[in-house]
Design a protein around this nucleic acid. Sequence first.
DNA 1: GCGTGATGTTGAA
DNA 2: TCAACCTCACGCC
Length: 268
Amino acid sequence: MPEGHTIHRLAADHNHAFAGRAVRATSPQGKFSDGAALVDGRVLETAEAHGKHLFLGFGDDWVHIHLGLFGKYAFGAGPVPPPTETVRLRLANPDSYADLRGPTTCALITGAEKQAIHDRLGPDPLRPGDDPGKAWQRVSRSRTSVAALLMDQKVVAGVGNVYRAEVLFRHGIDPYRPGRDLTRSEWDGMWADLAALMREGVRNNRIDTVRPEHTPEAMGRPPRVDDHGGEVYVYRRAAMPCHVCGGEIRTAGLAARNLFWCPGCQQR
DNA sequence: GCGTGATGTTGAA
DNA sequence: TCAACCTCACGCC
């Protein structure tokens, strides 16, 4: 689940369910008991997202959450179910609860520590004021592949393996092209597209990237949903036919992650 | 029941 | 480059 769109959605859901009211905080699992005790009964003022980082604000105390690869949230309405032993943090008020499991990070930090995290993250396509030019500065000077740059949170915050693969496909860009070989307009096009795709990801809570003209219906193919829950062109479609050209989708390891692309549609 | 892999990141070698 | 961390769902006995 967790690319940037998930985290922005979680921030919005927290604001909706908890902001402005006192909240009960517990750590049924026990690994965050001290932090939970410190915010228990206090007012959650605001929830914010930057890239894949979630911040829950209690005055100058912030709960910093990063889901990592496995972290998950379960939101619910009404009375809380019995806690299970993997719930790291449970927030609850009379109307709602939110259970956090499996995060890489769940820690109490200060405003200054939060600022340090913002400072080391690149611009986020989902943060309205963020400047794609800052990312371009790094991309245009780098010999690193554009595929690796897109996953580097210091360059762009919030893009993960799915959006990376999909945005490169949608722009016909070979993943192995060095950043400095891209044009400014190619970069600006990908940035604008990421902003739109991720915005829709927040709205629908899933990743869909297939244009209307390439949907199975439009292409006269049987309907289908990819097993991660959205409609995509290349992500986890290794050895399957490309929705556009019919060629085989390829996969390869790149910096410990699986890369997917269509050699026919994504030319050097 | 066991093994595998996954939309992520860090820190050591 | 690799192991470590965190959890769960799925396929295959």
